[in-house]
Design a protein around this nucleic acid. Structure first.
Lengths: 240, 240
DNA sequence: CGTCCCGTTGACGGCGCTCAAAACAGGTGG
DNA sequence: CCACCTGTTTTGAGCGCCGTCAACGGGACG
């Protein structure tokens, strides 16, 4: 485990392999032959929409954004990925359906689809773990559908801000914000200007503080209320 | 296989089990003990958002819609399911994150999560098949995000109409339309009236014909063009 | 100091939502 | 068969949210 070349117990593949009792050590040794570690700089494109997909990645550190650009138009962010998640595991089509770009410096493990399928067939524990990851991604996607489908601009931004809080973190703390206004707009299905306006409004009403590249929640309960549906009665009533 | 009580080779569970060589017959016999067949009438609620989830279903026939209603507001349809897909396989939370409702008469196979996990651990082929289903659902969800995020009303409706065409079907044919205008609106993040207006406009321009409960495509190429991004220059130019 | 990029702010117009009523279909009972 | 009622679909009028266009400010960097 410690002498495994990819050196990370938290990786879905390694982690699961290590704990899958019946094969054990032999499997660990086998898999490290097919895993490659890769690094990407912030802003670097990992793979591009429409290119043939042969490999999949397991994110170790950093964040990725998945984007799509239908025909000639603005980009839409389909989702954000953090450590532990899979990306590029496409089986139905032979090309990636979205572009993956590093938002921060990224470390990831690479494996070809062919090898991955073999690993899954031989290691039920890994398969279970992969199923769990897909479930999580699907839940995230459904949350996005909810937001895009019914929430007005202010509620979308509020929901987005709440989603930045790391699990089990103290509020009233300052969190890093790696997305630009434009990227937030692309994530929320809004225009850059609208996002900026909502941020300004929230700052004016001391709901948040937003220095460069960071954000700080000043009034969690009200943000949470705004994030719920825009309930008819103008949100201004709540903000002022 | 033919004497299996659930009697369907096309079910992910049975199908996969039958073809998983190394266990074979024994597994088939084992699984039919934990599978239950259920029927639901059109309009019947299969399970409701927020209720504890212990079972998952494999759709045999019919269609389901998955809906959510955040706080007090309108419903949002998260997705539609057809035969072969899984529903209710939630592992992270103990409650269903959406409501499942039958759109047509439905037949499904039921299995508890606990049993399902055991089946997955013992049958890699089933696990692979399940992963594939989740991938497909994720792709569908991402298509919805794309549509909701950037497309104007007309393009959303056009995309929806195109999505009704069964795989490998002849166009110029008449397809069943099980969703009401309100449901289409909830799926596309629009109002009922807007959907109705777009349908009317399309009918006026002989793009479609829409008798009760059915729809017929009259001009596939133009519908396809409208479904692409609304590219700035008014769509009226295309329609007239 | 000039340039570039990002964020902010203002003015304006249009898409699509809201409210309301009419047209329509389907089912039920007289 | 027709009157009646209920729920769906259609159509109209009005307006508000938000997207577009444009100009400005500020920090990073050469």
């Amino acid at each position: 485990m410690l002498n495994c070349r990819c050196q990370h117990g938290q990786c879905v593949l390694c982690g699961a392999l290590v704990t899958s009792g019946d094969h054990g050590k032999a499997q660990v040794c086998e898999i490290r032959g097919v895993l490659n570690r890769r690094r990407y700089a912030a802003g670097e494109v990992v793979f591009r929409e429409g290119t043939p997909c042969t490999q999949l990645l397991v994110l170790r550190t950093g964040q990725l954004k998945l984007t799509t650009m239908p025909l000639t138009g603005r980009e839409q962010i389909l989702g954000l990925l953090v450590a532990g998640q899979l990306v590029g595991f496409e089986t139905s089509d032979a090309t990636y359906p979205y572009t993956a770009t590093a938002l921060t410096p990224v470390e990831a493990c690479c494996i070809t689809h062919k090898e991955m399928l073999r690993v899954l067939e031989e290691n039920p524990a890994v398969a279970l773990s992969v199923i769990q990851r897909f479930r999580d991604e699907l839940v995230q996607a459904q949350i996005m559908i909810r937001n895009l489908g019914i929430k007005p601009a202010h509620a979308r931004v509020a929901s987005f801000i709440l989603s930045l809080i790391p699990a089990g973190a103290n509020h009233e703390e300052t969190f890093p914000l790696v997305l630009s206004r434009l990227e937030i707009a692309e994530l929320l299905g809004l225009s850059e200007e609208t996002v900026s306006r909502v941020f300004a409004e929230m700052r004016r009403n001391s709901l948040i503080d937003a220095p460069h590249g960071e954000i700080r929640l000043l009034d969690m309960p009200r943000i949470r209320r705004i994030a719920g549906i825009g309930n008819g009665e103008s949100w201004h009533g709540d903000l002022l």
